[in-house]
Design a protein around this nucleic acid. Structure first.
Lengths: 143, 143
DNA sequence: TTCTTGACTTGGACAGAGTCCATCGTAGGA
DNA sequence: TCCTACGATGGACTCTGTCCAAGTCAAGAA
């Protein structure tokens, strides 16, 4: 049914109806949902699921490395179930749509030692911004 | 006194005591303050300044391109007055310290057309993450 | 199958960040 | 100096996320 559910069970997770439903919501839909959206969709499958449980479950999935937390705009965090393949994000400044992208090059290598200030740098998140096709055509028409 | 104040006046800004104080706080200290920190520092110079005014003023400075909004962690946004020189950010995962950095390479060029999904891509924000020297030594000692 | 137990869930209170709005104050032009 | 539209105020409100005490239940043991 769900790869994610199987992997979580493999990690020693106690499998409850709530966790299964959250995993299904994330796994079935490769978009980037907010916690509230996950809660809304999970509620359709299991009406009595609580918000706290959704937050807890998402947090645990993030700790286990099965889900990535994406904070592109300072509003609600979004949850990206595509954690197993390294990727970056492309965000539409108009409507907020997010796409996973795979740039060439190695951003970590592009940071000279002189620019590291003694930090142990382990990660580089890139957020590309622009307008998606429909927002771009809308903007052209409006301007 | 303050370059930023002069530039804002040049943009047709009506100059009030509140705006001057916010500009001074940002201009005087090249760190990355949250709106609340800006409010706290501005209050020392002008005790009756309100939170709403600080938010409004910061928002306007961002629209004018004089200040950059940085959302590195999904918590409070930070405001970076160093908007005139393009740069990226290096964030300590331990204490949250932010440094401006200048990587080589062009991240925009690293995104193949096939990976753009028809977007008009205009910008690439890179957030490098790692541990600053003091957090790294603390972690080594603790582990 | 039943029991046991500790991990999980619930829901409501709470906190932090940010926005909104009606009202009041004032910068700057006439 | 006077006017007036732009800006400031502060309190209520929303949104996102966390915490906690009490109740529930998955899964291993007998």
């Amino acid at each position: 049914m769900s790869d994610l559910v199987e992997r979580l069970r493999g990690q020693g997770w106690r499998m409850t109806a709530q966790r299964r439903v959250v995993a299904q919501v994330l796994d079935g839909d490769h978009t980037h949902l907010t916690a509230d959206e996950v809660h809304a969709r999970a509620s359709r499958l299991l009406p009595e699921i609580s918000r706290a449980t959704v937050y807890n479950t998402l947090g645990e999935m993030v700790s286990l490395g099965e889900v990535i937390e994406v904070a592109t705009d300072g509003r609600a965090k979004r949850y990206d179930p595509n954690a197993r393949r390294p990727h970056q994000h492309l965000v539409c400044s108009g409507c907020g749509t997010i796409r996973d992208v795979h740039p060439t090059g190695s951003p970590l290598g592009d940071l000279p030692v002189a620019e590291r200030f003694g930090f142990t740098v382990t990660e580089a998140d890139i957020t590309y911004r622009g307008l998606c096709p429909s927002c771009a055509s809308g903007a052209a028409g409006a301007a």
